[in-house]
C-alpha cells in the first residue's frame, strides 16, 4: 500500500511535464497571442501543482499562495492583452 501523498507527488510530476510541453508553445509562437495562450496554460498548471503540493505536504499555505497566484496571473494576462491590442500584424 503506497502512501496517498505519493500519488500527489506523482500528479505534480505529471503537471511539470505538461508545463514543459506547454512551454514549447511559448517558444514556437508564431504570433504573440499564441505565446500568451501558452503562458496562460502554464499559469493554470502551476496553480494545479501548487494545490497538489499543498495536499501532499499538508501545508495550507501553499493553497493560499495558489489563490494569490491565480489572481496575479489573471492580472498579468489582462495586462498583456491590453498591450497587445495596440500592436499591428501579430508576427513577433
Amino acid at each position: 500500500m503506497i502512501d496517498l501523498n505519493m500519488y500527489f507527488y506523482g500528479a505534480v510530476g505529471a503537471f511539470g511535464l505538461y508545463i514543459i510541453i506547454s512551454a514549447f508553445r511559448v517558444f514556437l509562437g508564431p504570433t504573440v497571442p499564441d505565446r500568451t495562450v501558452g503562458l496562460d496554460t502554464i499559469n493554470t498548471l502551476v496553480i494545479a501543482s501548487m494545490i497538489g503540493l499543498g495536499a501532499a505536504m499538508w501545508e495550507t499555505l501553499f493553497i493560499d499562495i495558489a489563490i494569490v497566484y491565480a489572481i496575479l496571473s489573471f492580472v498579468t494576462t489582462l495586462f498583456i492583452s491590453k498591450y497587445m491590442e495596440g500592436m499591428e500584424g501579430g508576427e513577433a
Binding site: T31, V32, D40, L78, G89
Partner: peptide
C-alpha cells in the same frame, strides 16, 4: 479568472487583425 483571461486574449488577437 480563467474564462475572463481567455476572453481578453481572444479579443486582443482579433483587434490585432489575426
Amino acid at each position: 479568472t480563467n474564462p475572463t483571461g481567455a476572453h481578453a486574449i481572444a479579443r486582443a488577437a482579433h483587434k490585432m487583425g489575426i
